[in-house]
Every structure is written in structure tokens, then in C-alpha cells.
Design a protein around this nucleic acid. Structure first.
Length: 284
DNA sequence: TTCCAGGAGCGGA
DNA sequence: TCCGCTCATGGA
């Protein structure tokens, strides 16, 4: 993979990256289709992500910012091309490449990921996007036109349960307010250094965070590529394509480890996106 | 109108 | 540990 620069554009070559897959696969809720690709707000800034020929273009940015922010955000030090080659040995994973090739797992900001996935529970993606946008608009920093950054913990600590309910989060309002308060007494950054099971346990101490939300946060924010979130779609995948119905969380973890290894979480994301693409009506 | 969603918490068995 | 119920909301 190579990164070159043209004005305020960073051009990435040598690795197939499909922005429509990356930003429309349910790992982040702040991107929408733009004229030539996808655009959204991440790490406190609006960016545009497009493909031109075989290359991916990210703008506006600088070489310094690419090195300090976006290389990590886009997980550019990890070769998904090589990973996809490893899918050849699994018929189902191989099939996902027809519509999921060019996927990447983003390394997102932990607080935003945590709150967003508390909102996500028992919810539809379009509605999650709407609610997250509202949280940003009401409590985040205005960064231009109609753009707002996701609020910091301190900013969101000013939100009451009633405020959250007015944004449509429903019964999750208590979870969010409680978790925001609990995080004031917790060193979230320490989770980066924990092993998978300790990290999952630590997250599940928080209000409204169960096994599924914890796995999503570990996978999408804390770089635990073996975290394997189990939602209704993945249950379908395992049941329909692998003829496997886990009795409990332990059985699922064992199955994912054996079947998909240390990058099970990434495989999970291909499977998640694939089955949703097969069921376009249900997934909306 | 009914169904369902990137589920978690709770009480009871 | 497991099971079943409840929770709020709105798009399809």
C-alpha cells in the first residue's frame, strides 16, 4: 500500500478499499452517500472518501494528519487484501467477497462508539443514525455549516435523562446518562492494554452494555479483532450458512475462534454485511 | 396495523 | 446458569 498527496487530498493505492462497504456496513453511523463516494464526520472533522480508478481518495487532509489520525482510523497498517485471500478456504466467507470486498474495520473514537452502540441495541440502523445525529447536534461542538462533532464525555455529561428521551433514545436514556457518569470514574484508555476477556468484563460493568455492545465497542474502537458481536443477523448467518446455533456466549466464542481465528471479528463484519445485502428489505 | 431492529436488565426457576 | 419477559421508538 502506498499513500501519495495532491493538494489537500491523500491518495491510497495498492489496497482495494470500497468506501460504500466501509461506511455502510453498520460499524459507524455518521456517514452518508455523497456525490462521488461517502462523506461524514469522524474524529471531529468532516471528510470525503471516494474511489478514483483503483485508488482511494481522502480529503480534505494533510500528510501530518494522515499520519497522526487517518492511518490508524482506516486501519491502513493492516492488509485486508491478504486477509481476504485467507477467505478462500471457507465457502461462505469466499461468497461474501462478491459484495463485501474492500471492507475495512475502522478504529473509531471509544466514547462515540460506546454511546452509539448503546443506542443501537434493539434498534434499526436508519433510526440509530438519526438519534446519533441528534446527540451531536444538541451536545457536540459545531464544526461548520450543519456539522457537529460527537460530544466529549464532559459535554454529554450535561445531558439529562429527559434530554436523551427527547432525542428518541427511549428506554436507553437511563443507560446513557448512567454510563456517561460512570466513565467519569473510569480510565477507559486502560482497556486498550487489557486482554479480550478482561476488556469485555470492564465494558459490561457499564450501564446498558451487555455482551453484544461490548463486542462491538471492542472491535470498532479498541482494536480487538477477535471480538465477535452476536446480533440477530449473525445468528441467522451461523444458523443458515454454518448450521450452528450456539447455546450460550462461551459456545459462540469457541466456534468463532476455531472457525475464524484471531481475526474473527473482521470475518464477522463481512458476514454481517453480506447477509444484510441478501435481505435488503429486512435490513432497512 | 403489525413487525422488527447491530439487546440489556431483571426476576424466577 | 438459563429462561422468559419487559423496555421505547419509528421505519417498512
Amino acid at each position: 500500500m502506498n499513500i501519495s498527496y495532491d493538494g489537500e487530498k491523500a491518495i491510497i493505492s495498492g489496497e482495494r478499499i470500497d468506501p460504500c462497504v466501509v461506511f455502510d456496513c453498520g460499524q459507524t453511523f455518521r456517514f452518508e452517500k455523497s456525490e462521488r463516494g461517502m462523506s461524514g464526520i469522524a474524529m471531529g472533522k468532516r471528510i470525503y472518501v471516494e474511489t478514483t480508478g483503483e485508488n482511494l481518495v481522502i480529503y480534505p487532509t494533510t500528510q501530518d494528519e494522515m499520519q497522526s489520525v487517518w492511518t490508524d482510523y482506516f486501519d491502513l497498517d493492516f492488509s485486508y487484501t491478504e486477509l481476504e485471500r485467507g477467505f478462500e478456504g471457507d465457502e461462505v466467507l469466499k461468497r461474501t467477497l462478491t459484495c463485501c470486498s474492500g471492507m475495512r474495520l475502522l478504529n473509531q473514537e471509544p466514547f462515540e462508539t460506546l454511546i452509539s452502540f448503546i443506542v443501537s441495541q434493539n434498534n434499526h440502523i436508519p433510526r440509530i443514525k438519526k438519534i446519533v445525529a441528534g446527540i451531536c447536534r444538541e451536545f457536540g461542538t459545531h464544526i461548520g455549516e450543519n456539522d457537529y462533532a460527537f460530544p466529549t464525555r464532559e459535554q454529554l455529561s450535561r445531558a439529562t435523562v429527559q434530554d436523551m428521551k427527547e432525542l428518541g433514545v427511549g428506554y436507553r436514556a437511563d443507560y446513557i446518562v448512567n454510563t456517561v457518569n460512570m466513565l467519569g470514574q473510569m480510565n477507559v484508555h486502560a482497556i486498550f492494554e487489557m486482554d479480550y476477556f478482561s476488556a469485555k468484563g470492564a465494558l459490561q460493568e457499564l450501564s446498558g452494555v451487555g455482551p453484544k455492545v461490548a463486542d462491538c465497542v471492542l472491535l470498532f474502537a479498541f482494536k480487538k479483532k477477535n471480538a465477535f458481536p452476536k446480533d440477530v443477523w449473525i445468528k441467522r448467518v451461523l444458523s443458515e450458512y454454518y448450521d450452528f446455533t450456539p447455546k450460550n456466549d462461551r459456545e459462540l466464542v469457541a466456534f468463532a475462534n476455531e472457525k475464524f481465528g484471531e481475526y474473527g471479528g473482521i470475518a464477522q463484519q463481512y458476514l454481517f454485511h453480506y447477509i444484510r445485502m441478501q435481505n435488503p428489505v429486512k435490513s432497512k
